[in-house]
Design a protein around this nucleic acid. Structure first.
Lengths: 187, 187
DNA sequence: GACTGAATACTCATTTAATGAGTATACCTC
DNA sequence: GAGGTATACTCATTAAATGAGTATTCAGTC
């Protein structure tokens, strides 16, 4: 993730995820993203915004497009990952989110793509996220036990701890389910 | 909440909350919001954005300002709630958030202001939120048990259920703590 | 007693993100 | 062959967020 441009990609990673599967044009990515059974329940993106994000990813050097002529229709832009884009995506796919509030969208997107890959990827991701969550928990516990605290602060920390605890439990049960499915797939 | 203007106020409500305490100028609201022991751990707002929000609230008719001369300094704008602003805030303060993702910021802000009020307000808020959360839980359980489901969908629903379950638990323990404190305050 | 840095109080221009609407063609149906 | 929907993308505008700037006062300091 070069610091040449502003960093916080978020949904962009999902676009890379679809392109990692195979090259596609924007319209198709949008269809895939909007499928109710897939990422669609997690992320919503207007068409026009998707094209804007693709343009940004291109500027950043993570994707490149070729014009595919479709006579007599106007040609379409078929986007593919560049080597840098592919590398960045692979690294994203295996690394945890760094804040609790990114779990809901970003981590679930990671799971979506990891689960479509192979068990090793899924395992790397879950292991990494589990330790990140444990770290957050420790930090929050320390803050919560700090002296000189307003009641409100205490309640906020307790809330966050509860959410993180729930994430950890979910990681366990989900990984069990995913592992089962993977076994089933293999034999 | 008149539909005259675009609706999704969010942080704006907190500004109203401070002004419900007493009239203040923007700079002071910003100080109060940024206090580490208070809303500051939940919400972060740049100064310039705060002034923009105040201007929007004014346009909407929820606040009005008077210029307070400060010779030789330039005068400052002291904002106060209008009757509509006060009514809107009171109603917001007692009503639950309508989506799980609004708990983290918006509901905690409600708690912040409710707890500074009287026990009746706090109780109204918690009761309302508890039933909202229970409703979400039911809806999600129904969706999760639906037929023809992708594995990913199932995982997402399970995740959301876990978060909501944690919210419900937090509502219980927090309300216990708050009720204790209130008893203590009274005598 | 001049200087420096922080605090007070607010404004503005610019960048970035998000929305809605629009364009142009093809296909399918009645 | 008319009308609606699907394909595929662009663009202008609105709205949100950021950073920097202004102008004054005050407290400390060397």
């Amino acid at each position: 993730m070069s610091p040449l441009t502003r960093s916080p990609l978020t949904i962009e990673w999902s676009l890379l995820g679809f392109l990692a599967e195979r090259p596609m044009h924007g319209y198709e990515i949008h269809q895939r993203m909007s499928e109710a059974a897939g990422l669609g329940i997690v992320w919503h993106l207007k068409q026009s915004q998707l094209y804007a994000l693709l343009a940004r990813l291109e500027k950043r050097g993570y994707v490149a497009y070729t014009l595919e002529p479709q006579e007599p229709r106007p040609p379409r832009k078929v986007y593919a990952l560049t080597p840098e884009g592919a590398a960045a995506f692979e690294s994203w796919l295996r690394s945890p989110v760094e804040r609790g509030r990114d779990f809901r969208l970003e981590f679930l997107a990671k799971v979506y793509f990891a689960q479509a890959r192979n068990p090793a990827v899924r395992q790397a991701l879950f292991t990494a996220q589990r330790s990140a969550c444990r770290r957050w928990r420790e930090e929050l516990e320390a803050e919560r036990e700090a002296q000189e605290q307003e009641l409100f602060e205490h309640l906020v920390y307790t809330f966050r701890l509860g959410q993180i605890e729930a994430m950890l439990e979910w990681l366990d049960t989900s990984e069990r389910i995913l592992a089962q499915t993977e076994d089933y797939m293999e034999g």
